[in-house]
Simulated scan of single mutants.
Amino acid sequence: MMKQLLLSFSPLLVFLLHCTTTVAQSPATSPAPTNITAILEKSGKFSTLVWLLGNTQVGDRINTQINKGNKGLTLFAPTDAAFSRLKSGILNSLSDQQKVQLMLFHILTSFISLSQFQAVSNPLHTQAGENSNGHFPLNVTSSAKQVNITTGIDTANVAKSIYTDSQIAVYEVDNVLLPLEIFRHLSSVFAPSPEGPPSRASVDTSSAMGLMIRHAAVWLGVAAIAAFSL
């Protein structure tokens, strides 16, 4: 009786043993690779930066470094509003090499958290090249509440952290970081103020009003002297 019972359960035991072995041998699910383009697109205000990272292939370089390399990195991400402050056509005037250098200038060669900025040494090391010759200087001043970055051309403020993990830190900045190597020879880099310079008509009107006031003051002074002399 026992023998017949064991024989009847044998197929079920074989099936369960096979399922257990298969589950045990199945590989663990790997985490999805980090994609810098997806990180920036999720925010919805870095379309110009995303275009430049794709056009220069620096975005692919970042993804390769953080997914296959052992070293971390830090990316300063200018918003679309930051790019809009640049003079019209200035990006298109850059050569392909200069566009690559501009993007690499926004990438530090190591992972730096917000708190670590208070202890870093200037100038910061970027992927754009050597900074000891003064061509790609990037200096930081930091307090408990604010991180400012200066390039010799402009200054940017770290607005907030966009993304961080063990390999990469992405920070939103309110200005494009402009390296001296590329922009020092340009007399004008930024777009003119929306208000613009005063028009000739407004200047003439202001001058006329001033002249009328001065004439009125002189007339009142003469009239006052005449009244006292009576």
Rank of each mutant, 00 (worst) to 15 (best):
K160R: 13
G134V: 07
D154Y: 03
K145D: 13
G134P: 01
T141P: 02
N139S: 15
V147E: 00
P137R: 01
L138C: 12
V158F: 05
A144V: 15
A159H: 06
I162R: 01
P137D: 03
G152Y: 00
G134K: 01
P137H: 04
H135I: 04
S161P: 04
N148Q: 15
I162A: 02
T151E: 02
H135P: 01
I149H: 07
T151W: 02
I149T: 08
T141S: 09
T150F: 01
F136N: 12
N139W: 00
A156L: 08
V158Q: 05
K145Q: 15
T141Q: 09
S142D: 08
G134R: 00
K160G: 07
S143V: 12
L138H: 03
G152D: 00
S132G: 14
I162V: 14
N148P: 04
G152N: 06
F136D: 04
T155M: 10
Q146Y: 10
T155K: 10
N133V: 08
K160Y: 11
S142A: 15
D154V: 12
N148Y: 08
A159Y: 07
D154L: 05
K145N: 15
K145R: 10
D154W: 00
K160V: 08
N133H: 06
T141W: 06
T155P: 04
S161F: 04
L138M: 14
H135L: 13
A144L: 11
N139Q: 12
N133G: 14
N133I: 05
A159W: 02
T141D: 11
T151I: 09
L138E: 08
N157W: 06
S143K: 07
S143M: 07
A144C: 06
H135R: 13
S132N: 14
A156N: 09
G152L: 00
I153S: 03
L138Q: 08
Q146V: 13
V158S: 07
T150A: 13
K145W: 08
T150D: 08
A159D: 15
V147W: 01
N133Q: 13
A156K: 08
V158M: 10
G134H: 02
G134Q: 04
I162C: 01
N157T: 14
L138Y: 07
T150M: 05
S142F: 02
P137W: 00
N133Y: 04
G152R: 05
V140S: 10
V158P: 02
N148C: 07
N139L: 12
N133L: 07
